[in-house]
Design a protein around this nucleic acid. Structure first.
Length: 259
DNA sequence: ACCTCCCTGGCC
DNA sequence: GGCCAGGGAGGT
């Protein structure tokens, strides 16, 4: 994809282009451009274009990109098709339309969603001190702060629960009360939980929304300590995993060893 | 710094 | 037939 030029582009679903003025705007801005780089920041994909614009993409809950031969039929929910100058089709498929594609110019980058992201936790894992600083004075529950991509970018609901379990921190703990010592445990847990999950291909739930590029399921669901395990024993202490709803997100933790 | 909303497939 | 899952934007 990098080095290729856009020879054609169709945005079929207005919601997928909702950060731009219209589907037409996305098409017009992309047409003829060359992809100069491709990167990830947190859960966002960012491609630099040859005229200083950027293509920003988010997969939301159910989005995926597929590189396909144009002779093959597009699967259902294919909302964007980008034809590259070598004939390859880049398809954006997203049943639940929580994902989006946006093309921003240089002046718009500062106001775009990626401008508000904190450091990517995989590329630039926070030190204990950095994390403690970012949490200090915050009264919101630590679980909510882990999901706030402006603090650290990259954690979603499943891994936030798993990270807190690993660090033995109760999800309702006010951020400012985590303190420097436990911030260290938290920082370590972020990298550890993610690397273990990535090692086995990530977390594919029963809905099969996330699959590896070859269509295989990731195996990390078997390793989850608390997420989706309400009523089951905590693998560390044997306590019974509880589920609460926090800010509209299901939250799982062990009341015995997370304090 | 909060809350509401958006969306569809899968399951009860 | 209704509920649930979860990401971020945008409004208050």
């Amino acid at each position: 994809m990098v080095g290729r030029r856009v020879a054609g582009v169709t945005v079929r679903h207005p919601r997928t282009a909702r950060l731009n003025a219209s589907t037409d705007e996305v098409e017009t801005r992309l047409m003829g451009r060359r992809f100069e780089s491709l990167a990830r920041h947190g859960k966002f994909l960012v491609a630099d274009l040859d005229d200083g614009q950027r293509l920003i993409a988010h997969l939301g809950m159910s989005g995926r990109f597929s590189l396909a031969n144009p002779d093959t039929e597009s699967p259902p929910h294919t909302h964007v098709v980008i034809v590259l100058d070598d004939g390859t089709e880049v398809r954006f498929i997203d049943p639940r339309t929580f994902g989006f594609l946006a093309v921003v110019d240089e002046d718009e980058i500062a106001g775009s969603p990626i401008a508000r992201l904190g450091p990517d936790l995989w590329v630039s894992p926070p030190t204990a001190e950095e994390l403690a600083t970012r949490l200090s004075g915050r009264t919101a529950p630590i679980k909510a702060l882990l999901l706030d991509q402006a603090i650290v970018a990259g954690l979603g609901n499943i891994y936030a629960d798993e990270v807190l379990h690993h660090a033995r921190i109760h999800p309702l703990t006010p951020g400012g009360e985590v303190g420097p010592g436990r911030a260290g445990a938290l920082a370590e847990a972020m990298t550890l939980v993610l690397s273990e999950a990535i090692e086995v291909g990530g977390t594919t739930l029963d809905d099969l929304a996330y699959l590896l590029p070859d269509g295989a399921a990731g195996e990390n669901v078997d390793r989850l300590a608390v997420y989706g395990r309400e009523g089951e024993p905590c693998p560390r202490c044997g306590g019974v995993v509880e589920r609460i709803v926090l800010r509209g997100r299901s939250t799982h933790y062990c009341p015995m060893c997370q304090v």
